[in-house]
Amino acid sequence: AVGIPPKQFQNMQRTLFAKQLIQQTHLSMTDIAITAGYQSLRQLQRAIEQYCATSPTQLRKKEPVQQKAISLFLSYRPPYNWPYVRDFLATRAIEGMERVTDESYERYFSCNESIGFFKATHDEARHGFKLLIDMPDLGRLHTIIENIKQVLDLHADPILIEQSLLQSGLPPSKLTPGLRLPSAWSVFESGCRAIVGQQVSVKAAIGQVTLLVHQLGETVSDALPSNGLESKTSERYSFPSPESVAENSLEFLRMPQARKEAVRHFARLFINGNMPSHEDILAIKGVGPWTLDYLKMRGERNPDVYLGGDLIVRKMAQQYPVAPEKAAPWRSYLTLQLWQLSNQ
């Protein structure tokens, strides 16, 4: 429709995105090259010269303007089961922090000392997501974009995963095509969700996590971001910091005192950006192998975690005899598939 080959059009779009970053942000040229998908600074320079008839330095002569939301496109290998991902995220969405619609997922997130926002809208025809991202500090833009790709599991190879699930003994008719592993935003967030969710339903767990976010999460100012989600609540939030959780008595949570202490102890392990070992996490009273495995699967995005101790997984594995070891290194997807079969 635009009269140029697809590859050339793609290159032009990438260059225009890089140009936008150069003119609208304080990012270093190296960060811009990486964020826009170039292998090197030299590649970025050549592209700018080809499509903009100038150099990156010339483009940056003026002071960067007020940052606006950035749009880009994130691709995946089809098939991609968006209804599964959407419903998984919707069931666990925190009111005021996340919102899931028929075609999109959006949320607020903490980034250094500021709060950002993104909205990912599924585009099945183009095999990807249109991403709108708004954050005042773009120094970590590349990291945040990679995190969003992980949350939506855009790097997965569905054909390879499907072959592994078949090898484990699942009948082809029972496979969910394009199954993905929707991740939590961070290891800390996934651990909080897992501990709060022990021995209760997903709905009850989300009720408690929502209380945690509304009581201790940072409130988003009206000024930022400009494309924020609509919420039934009057406030909008980012997930609480480890410091705020560790220092609070958590009296507002409706759960046994021992579990509140486990959440506080867990939060203490993450203070000052620390990343605790699995041994440190297991040493917390009230945190067992299931909680750690859930954290590894959704927080650390480990594709090879079989939740053999999970009640639903155990029940479905009896109904559909499987050999989990034969699904390696994709046993997390076997866990998800067995969960999915329990809903049918």
Rank of each mutant, 00 (worst) to 15 (best):
A205P: 06
L295K: 03
D153A: 01
L307G: 09
S249Q: 12
M135S: 04
Y51D: 12
R60Q: 13
A323K: 00
R46G: 06
P64H: 12
L166A: 01
R92K: 14
A18F: 06
G116R: 08
K285E: 13
Q23N: 12
T30R: 15
V202F: 12
M135N: 03
Q39P: 03
D304R: 01
D102K: 11
D280N: 14
L282Y: 06
R314T: 05
G178F: 05
F239Y: 08
L295G: 10
L89P: 06
L224F: 13
H155G: 02
Q39M: 09
Q208S: 10
S173P: 00
A53F: 12
L292T: 09
I271D: 08
F118W: 04
C111A: 13
L131S: 04
V65S: 15
P177I: 02
G116S: 05
H265G: 02
Y38W: 13
L341F: 02
C192W: 00
P303A: 04
L311R: 15
I48W: 12
Q167C: 01
F118R: 06
D102G: 11
R140P: 00
T335R: 04
E162D: 09
G178A: 06
T54S: 14
W185P: 01
R254S: 08
K232H: 11
T57H: 14
K7R: 10
H265A: 15
N248D: 15
N302E: 14
G217E: 01
T35K: 07
R301Y: 14
P182V: 08
T210S: 15
Q13K: 10
L334D: 00
H26E: 15
V65Q: 15
L181D: 05
L336Q: 11
L59Q: 07
K119S: 13
T219P: 04
E124Q: 15
G286D: 08
Q344A: 12
I206H: 02
M29H: 15
K260I: 03
V200E: 03
Q150V: 13
P136R: 05
M97V: 05
H278K: 12
A262S: 13
G169A: 03
L44D: 10
G308T: 08
G288D: 09
Q257W: 14
Q8T: 14
E261T: 12
A267Y: 11
P321Y: 01
R259H: 12
F239R: 00
L175A: 00
V263T: 05
L307N: 05
L181C: 10
H142A: 15
K296Q: 14
F17V: 07
Y38M: 09
E49F: 10
K7Y: 01
T101L: 08
L336P: 06
L131N: 05
T54Y: 04
S114R: 14
F252T: 07
T91K: 13
S55Y: 14
L307R: 07
I4W: 10
Y294W: 13
V263F: 10
T233D: 11
E113D: 15
E325C: 01
S244M: 07
I312R: 08
H26M: 11
L89C: 05
Q20R: 13
I133H: 03
E235V: 07
E98I: 06
K232T: 10
Y38E: 04
P329Q: 00
S231G: 08
Q208V: 07
F109P: 04
L334H: 01
L250E: 02
E279T: 15
E113C: 09
Q340L: 04
L59E: 09
S28W: 09
Q10C: 03
R92D: 02
L292Y: 09
R193I: 02
S277A: 02
S244E: 05
A323T: 02
S104T: 14
V151T: 13
